[in-house]
Write a protein that binds this DNA or RNA. Structure first.
Length: 411
RNA sequence: CGGGGCGUAGCGCAGCCUGGUAGCGCACACGGUUCGGGACCGUGGAGCCGGAGGUUCAAAUCCUCUCGCCCCGACCA
């Protein structure tokens, strides 16, 4: 597998997650705010996406895919074509028609709803996609944390009334809790300003990290939390205790849009009495790359990344220390194929390099468990099963190590 | 978009102040010895010094412009 690790820190990186993603061979930068995902990095993103999809499907969301290239008319109808300035990439097609690259998809999905939803019987609906967004950021920064092109899971709910929206909003909030927990993140759900998205209410999901661009305030007494932007005081508005501030990365958000988009785009339905009413909408976003970066920010040590097993690029890494020793290779290959047959994703460091390099790289890329096979232990018939996180080492017979993979990585 | 910093071999850097035609470490290729925490010896390849213009007998080095990247701020639907 192509995993180009770097011994030294590239000069352009400052954030820990950025440094470790570059050094570990997860990503490479093409230009400011534009990143190439290498095999290891893409595996992490796909594992995150898989979790997101499972939890979205679990609340009844249906996956679709919308274009990245949009006609201007739809954006003109909601007014955002004019409200949004340089941040929108604009272009013309060969006929001179104004187009833009999608920064988000409210306009497009509402256009779809307007053409397809006729009756209260068609509601509710929840549609989602994992799609590229393009935003001409004034200042891309901190590796994949703030980029000009990025993947987003965006879902949209369509209901006949506020009560329906409230239900879908809460379902999304609950799904988001499960997603971020499964990704091993420490996070808070905070109240936020709906901003240009419009609508009545919004919450953000914030992963505490020193490189975060947002500041959240937390009440240690009653659990109240909010984005610093809207909470100006230093006393909790709910219980009066003092608030503490923390930097955080925004990893997800949920908005109650109401009829902000359905009205201008004429997404109407007929209710039970035959009255025409606007569909009531919500929109909900998650940035998989930000989850990956936040996970690294929250879980690393001096040697590298410590992936949570839910989003690690592999379940276990096998390190045969001497490629020229037939017995070592026989055991390594046997463990590799056995774990693979049992459905685990296994990385084997089959490079003919010194043990020190294998140890260093394994710690750097941070796969949760390492199986180390060396001559020293093999004389006693054992291999090492090592936890990247705790550094605990168990000396086990090869068969026991195979069982141990099932226990630690299974489920 | 304002302020600051940096562009020299794949990566990290020195050389620039005081002009004389480019160097170190790692990486890479080949040969050999190694094999439990980034091994060792030998040999070798690789850079028109981000780009353009100017000054000068001579520019990586001085001057002007320009492009790119990073950091702080503003912005962030």
């Amino acid at each position: 597998m192509f995993i180009p690790t770097l011994r030294e820190t590239p000069a352009e990186a400052e954030a820990v997650s950025h440094i470790l993603m570059l050094r570990g061979g997860f990503v490479r930068q093409l230009a400011a705010g534009l990143y190439i995902y290498l095999p290891l990095g893409w595996r992490v993103i796909n594992r995150i996406n898989k979790i997101i999809k499972e939890e979205m499907e679990a609340i009844g969301a249906q996956e679709i895919s919308m274009p990245v290239l949009h006609p201007a008319e739809v954006w003109q109808q909601t007014g955002r074509w004019f409200d949004i300035k340089e941040e929108m990439f604009r272009l013309r097609d060969r006929c001179g028609r104004d187009m833009c690259l999608g920064m988000t998809h409210e306009e497009i999905i509402t256009w779809l709803a307007s053409t397809e939803i006729r009756s209260y019987r068609d509601l509710p609906q929840v549609w989602y996609q994992l799609q590229t967004k393009l935003r001409d950021e004034a200042r891309p920064k901190s590796g994949v944390l703030r980029t000009r092109e990025f993947l987003m899971k965006d879902s949209y709910s369509f209901d006949k009334d506020e009560a329906g929206l409230e239900e879908n909003y809460q379902r999304h909030a609950n799904a988001y809790h499960r997603i971020f927990s499964r990704c091993g993140l420490k996070f808070y759900q905070v109240e936020s300003d709906p901003g240009m998205m419009g609508g009545a209410a919004a919450h953000e999901f914030m992963a505490p990290s020193s490189v975060g661009e947002d500041e959240i305030v937390l009440c240690g007494k009653c659990g109240y939390s909010a984005n610093r932007e809207i909470e100006k005081g230093d006393k909790c508005p709910k219980c009066g205790a003092s608030l503490k501030a923390e930097k955080a990365i925004e990893i997800g958000n949920i908005f109650k849009l109401g009829t902000k988009y359905s009205l201008p785009l004429k997404a109407f339905y007929l209710d039970e009495k035959g009255n025409e009413k606007p569909v009531v909408m919500g929109s909900y976003g998650i940035g998989p790359a930000r989850i990956a970066a936040a996970a690294i920010e929250q879980n690393n040590d001096k040697d590298g990344i410590i992936w949570h097993r839910g989003i690690a690029p592999f379940d276990v890494e096998i390190l045969p220390l001497n490629m020229n020793n037939a017995e070592i290779m026989r055991i390594a290959e046997s463990l590799y194929s056995r774990a693979g047959e049992e459905g685990f994703e296994v990385l084997m460091d089959d490079r003919n390099v010194s043990p020190g390099i294998k140890f260093k790289d394994a710690d750097l890329i941070g796969i949760p468990y390492q199986i180390i096979i060396g001559e020293k232990n093999l004389k006693e018939g054992v291999v090492e099963f090592k936890s990247r996180k705790t550094r605990e080492v168990k000396r086990l017979k090869p068969e026991e190590a195979a069982e141990k993979i099932k226990i630690e990585c299974g489920g």
